[in-house]
Design a protein around this nucleic acid. Structure first.
Lengths: 123, 123
DNA sequence: ATTTGACTTAGAGTAAACTCTAAGCTGTAT
DNA sequence: ATACAGCTTAGAGTTTACTCTAAGTCAAAT
């Protein structure tokens, strides 16, 4: 069992942000007798996955949608699968885009390094 | 020579956004006698590169910094090179992160496809 | 007993990147 | 000549994702 600040530390975010995610319907941890949030290992695993989705540009609204589908039970399995496959496509397209940009940057950097000794008009 | 809407169409953004980029110091096209913006091929090439930087998560503030360094002339070559190398590192780290997430999604999707026929508790 | 630190809530404030509005000008097409 | 499309400006409004504030509760430490 973890407190909000334990989780914040583990994820590298603030407790404020975790409360915001809860308000946005992304997680619903239980409360202890004095009303404080208590997170278990399954909450932590879910939030780690959420962080992955966020870092790969999935908007909060879509993460919430996925979380809600999970709470609705077994009959939403296909809908969740569709969301995951859509996001996988988005991830693959981001990788292609980044790889192409990496090449452009590599070439530009080489041209710049050249122009430091020679004289070229690189931008 | 291109009008603002030509460029907007070519880049898949709106004329509003192009004016915003100008206000933010990212580009300074010339004006025709009636005060309208006129873009040339070098403007277009620069904006295409800007779009690449944006799509790979470089903030407007950093793109502006790069643009300003270019306008300051030859003595900023090293500074521009540093910016490009920093961004290249960021791009490479994004690729690593996306690749790892792609694997996670691939596995999760496989588990979901399994659970549609069998009975597993995937999230 | 009181201070300290971490927690609670509702709600206000911020930053980034657009996105749009209003009022007006200009060049071509009927 | 007048309509119309597309341009201009300054500035206001929107969306997303936080980020913080204020006022208060609570448990452990001095």
């Amino acid at each position: 069992m973890y407190t909000i600040s334990d989780i914040a530390k583990l994820l590298g975010i603030t407790a404020h942000t975790l409360r915001y995610y809860e308000k946005e319907g992304i997680i619903a941890p239980i409360r202890n007798p004095s009303g404080e949030r208590v997170y278990d290992d399954s909450n932590l695993a879910w939030l780690r996955f959420v962080m992955r989705l966020k870092q790969t540009q999935m908007p909060i609204s879509q993460i919430r949608e996925y979380a809600h589908l999970y709470l609705e039970g077994e009959h939403t399995t296909q809908a969740r699968l569709n969301l995951l496959e859509d996001h996988r496509n988005s991830v693959q397209s981001q990788i292609r885009n980044l790889t192409a940009t990496e090449k452009v940057l590599k070439d530009k950097i080489a041209a710049y390094k050249n122009s430091i000794t020679k004289e070229t008009g690189v931008r």
